[in-house]
Simulated assay, not measured.
Amino acid sequence: MSSAPLPPLPPVPGVTDDELQPAGRSMIEVLEEDHDRLVRLCSRAATEPAASDVLVATLARHLAAEQQYLYPAVRSVLPEGPAIAERELAANADLLVALRRSHSTTDGAALQSITERIRQHTHRAATEVFPALRGRFSNGELVRLGNRVEIARSAAPTRPHPGTPSTPPLDKIVDPALGVVDKVMDVLSCRTTWEEDL
């Protein structure tokens, strides 16, 4: 098994990292749940205008978390990982550009385009990326990555910011800073960004 691109846990005498089972959900579970939520929000956005803001925020948070933790993990353990990561980061950058354009319009065709891109993104992850990662990391490593993904999502921007750094370490600095600005703008504009608040 390969080692996750994470700092080592603090040493515990007589216990190895493999013997520790951190609490939380695996990165794959967290991202699969996001994918389900994104597909659901695409359907809701077609009939509920308020769901459009939530879709944008959810997708922005999701892509930021993936670029910070999923793609570095893919690069580190899969033989074809660097090529997969570059392909997915390029697709995500195109998706952010399209999302930024579509967010300023009420055009139904723009939403259809975003929906199709999201479906392609979730399909590639479910059929290529996630199966390849299973078995490459221990359950404990996947949970540690899952915990970091959840933290990254909570600090991530809620609006598309194409052109920002998409690889560590700069993305881990820029995304939370943009997230603060976005969250202030969300509060000032009374923008809904969570599906639970619809």
Rank of each mutant, 00 (worst) to 15 (best):
P162Q: 03
E150H: 08
T127K: 07
D171F: 00
G108N: 09
V149N: 03
F130P: 10
S113A: 11
D171G: 10
G146F: 01
L142Q: 11
G146N: 12
Q120P: 00
P162T: 03
P160W: 02
T115Q: 13
E150A: 09
G140P: 08
E150K: 10
T167W: 07
T105D: 13
V143F: 06
T164C: 09
E150V: 10
G135M: 05
G108W: 01
P160D: 13
I118E: 00
T115W: 04
A155V: 05
P157M: 08
R124F: 01
E116M: 04
T106H: 12
P168E: 07
P157R: 13
R124N: 01
P157W: 03
G146I: 04
A156I: 08
S104V: 11
S154E: 13
L142A: 05
E141T: 05
T115D: 12
A132W: 01
S154W: 06
A126R: 15
D107V: 03
R148C: 11
G163P: 14
T122D: 11
P165N: 01
E116Y: 02
T105N: 06
N147P: 11
N139D: 13
S166H: 01
H121Q: 14
V129L: 02
R153K: 15
D175T: 05
A110P: 00
F137S: 02
T158E: 10
T167I: 07
P160N: 05
S138Q: 04
S154Q: 13
V143G: 09
R119A: 15
E141H: 03
T158W: 05
I173R: 03
F137E: 07
G108M: 02
N139Y: 11
L170I: 05
T122M: 07
T106R: 14
F137Q: 01
R148M: 12
R136I: 06
A110T: 06
G135A: 11
G163T: 12
I118L: 09
R119W: 10
A110K: 09
P160L: 13
T127M: 12
G140Y: 00
S138F: 00
A156C: 01
L145C: 09
I114N: 00
P165S: 04
S166P: 01
D107S: 14
G146Y: 05
T167D: 08
E141W: 07
E128M: 04
T106Y: 08
D171S: 14
P165R: 02
R134A: 10
L142S: 04
V149H: 03
T122W: 00
T158L: 14
H161W: 15
P176G: 01
L170C: 04
G163D: 05
L170K: 12
A110E: 14
V143M: 00
G140A: 07
R136S: 10
S138E: 07
S113I: 00
E116G: 07
P169E: 12
D171P: 01
R148K: 15
T167R: 14
N139F: 01
R119T: 11
Q112D: 15
V143L: 02
I173N: 03
P160E: 07
R136E: 04
T106V: 14
I151Q: 12
L111N: 01
L145S: 03
D107E: 08
P168S: 09
T105A: 15
F130I: 06
V149P: 00
V149Y: 11
P157D: 01
